[in-house]
Amino acid sequence: MNVLFKAHSGLRYLVLVVGLLAVVYFVSGLVSKRPADKKVRILGSSFAGLLDTQILLGLVLLGSGWPFQPMLWGHLSLMLLAAVLAHVLLVVNRRRPQPGFLLPLIGVGGALLLISLGILAIGRGVLGSTPIPS
């Protein structure tokens, strides 16, 4: 169970890094007014896939007998909402006749905000390793 917790806790850094890289790329695309390319889909899909893996690890952790604390409701809700936001806006953008940078930026940027709030909801630092209070 401790391995699952460490994997879940450590994967957040990869989710955050890929999300930040995607946001920087989407902003640069908007600012330069260039057409969206294949990298938009690759970065968006990579972020969404990592986020899905993170949620799956969290659910397995909960199902494995990890002690459930009431603050986990906020964490779980915010993380699921982040995944839904990212997926919906990335799929809508992909199905547009002319995909752009704005919808992926809102999807990934909004998801990162929700993820940060979800991490804070359990008393952990977004970039630090503050222990979960008992």
Rank of each mutant, 00 (worst) to 15 (best):
V15Y: 07
G74N: 12
L127S: 08
R94I: 00
I55D: 07
S129E: 12
N2L: 13
L30I: 14
G49M: 09
W73E: 04
R124K: 15
D52L: 14
H75D: 08
K39T: 10
M71W: 07
S32F: 00
R12M: 07
L59V: 15
V40Y: 00
L114S: 04
V84Q: 04
L21V: 13
S134I: 06
G19L: 09
L43F: 14
M1W: 09
K33L: 08
T53R: 01
G109I: 09
R124A: 12
K33I: 00
L59D: 08
P133V: 10
L43T: 03
P70T: 02
Y13V: 11
S134V: 09
V24A: 13
L30S: 09
T53H: 00
R96E: 01
A22P: 04
I119L: 06
F68Y: 15
V15N: 11
V15C: 09
L59F: 11
P99W: 03
F101S: 06
K6F: 07
L72R: 04
F5Q: 12
L51V: 02
L21W: 03
L50Q: 05
P67R: 15
Q98V: 14
G65S: 10
V40L: 02
K39V: 08
T53W: 01
L61N: 08
H75K: 06
L16F: 15
V88A: 03
L112A: 02
L89E: 00
V31A: 15
S28C: 03
V3H: 07
L105P: 02
G110K: 12
L80A: 12
L78A: 02
A83Y: 10
L85Q: 09
A121S: 15
K38M: 04
G19S: 11
V108M: 07
A83N: 11
Y25K: 11
R96M: 14
L114I: 09
Q54W: 15
V108K: 03
F101K: 04
A36W: 01
L16A: 14
L113A: 14
S45L: 07
P35R: 12
L56K: 03
L90T: 00
G100V: 09
V126P: 05
L85V: 13
L62M: 15
T130V: 13
I42D: 03
L4A: 05
F26S: 07
P133W: 13
L103S: 00
A82T: 12
P104M: 06
L127N: 02
